[in-house]
């Protein structure tokens, strides 16, 4: 009897995350000698990221991959990833994720009946605008920037001097084209795949946040697995994480080259100016419930 784990996610089958999950399924099948398998449901067929998390809690879906942002509504610790310039650089970011801190953050999901199995790379998010290029934080003044529906993301844009405007992802292309918002922010592959570069010709690599993707499993499903099965699954996940992170680097470079080819002006940023701009917000957050965690992250060398 084959044990099938159903996995839903919101990205399309050509996305690196989907390919990494196919790899995960292949490895799981090999490791378990064909007794375990993964069935993928891409493109948000089974619901939005927030709804997929709920399906894990309900027990009708085994696993999912979601951005850390929608997890805020379930576990407040996840607000961490929307803090601008919390990570010094990419090396620091991965060091934190792969350390005890990263594991503690995943463990914080347990009371919500979820288990985090690992982090995929979702790159760094940067601004893109339609009308005029942004070079310094001053250029963001009263510019309407689309944000995800997240209180932490709103606070972040406000701290950077922009004017946060919540717009749903599916409507963003027309909103940019028609001028309902003047810009948005995302990682290079998403900027490219969403075709937003067609209407937003300026992309500044200020890399204000790094919000990872989290691989989740329902706690009910996890606890029904034997220890051996858990080990197989964890190994398959770990290997798919390695594959995804390597592939993501290539995707990012390819996306930046492709948007430049399409006529987008890619601007390198003086990040220190942006960092200075948000120091007030970070001091404020340090005094709050996330304070100890922020300190631990900053101490990682």
């Amino acid at each position: 009897d084959v044990m099938v784990l159903r996995v839903g996610h919101s990205l399309d089958p050509s996305h690196t995350v989907h390919k990494a999950m196919l790899k995960m399924g292949e490895r799981l099948q090999q490791l378990s000698g064909g007794t375990m398998a993964i069935e993928l449901y891409p493109s948000g067929q089974l619901g939005s990221e927030r709804e997929l998390i709920e399906l894990l809690q309900i027990g009708s879906l085994a696993m999912t991959k979601v951005s850390a942002s929608p997890l805020e509504g379930f576990v407040p610790t996840m607000k961490l990833f929307n803090i601008p310039y919390l990570f010094r650089d990419q090396e620091h970011f991965f060091k934190v994720l792969d350390s005890d801190i990263g594991r503690d953050i995943l463990a914080s999901l347990k009371p919500a009946q979820l288990l985090g199995l690992g982090y995929y790379d979702a790159g760094s998010r940067s601004f893109y605008t339609t009308k005029k290029p942004v070079v310094t934080p001053a250029d963001l003044a009263s510019v309407k920037i689309r944000v995800q529906e997240s209180q932490a993301a709103m606070a972040m844009i406000r701290a950077l001097g922009g004017n946060p405007t919540p717009i749903s992802w599916g409507e963003l292309y027309t909103a940019l084209q028609q001028g309902v918002v003047d810009g948005a922010e995302n990682n290079p592959p998403s900027f490219y795949l969403s075709r937003h570069y067609e209407v937003a010709p300026y992309y500044i690599l200020d890399e204000h946040t790094s919000v990872p993707d989290v691989i989740l499993i329902s706690r009910y499903v996890w606890e029904r697995l034997s220890e051996q099965q858990q080990a197989w699954l964890q190994q398959a996940v770990d290997e798919s994480v390695d594959f995804q992170r390597a592939q993501w680097q290539l995707d990012t470079e390819a996306a930046l080259a492709a948007v430049q080819e399409a006529g987008v002006q890619v601007i390198s940023a003086d990040k220190s100016q942006f960092q200075q701009q948000v120091s007030g917000l970070i001091n404020e957050l340090k005094a709050g419930e996330l304070g100890p965690m922020i300190q631990r992250i900053e101490e990682v060398q």
Partner: peptide
């Protein structure tokens, strides 16, 4: 009813308003 119970006991809040789901 079970959905209400789950979201209440797991303290899920909405993204923008922050109200319990």
């Amino acid at each position: 009813g079970r959905l209400v119970y789950l979201t209440a006991s797991l303290n899920q809040t909405s993204a923008a308003l922050g109200v319990p789901m």
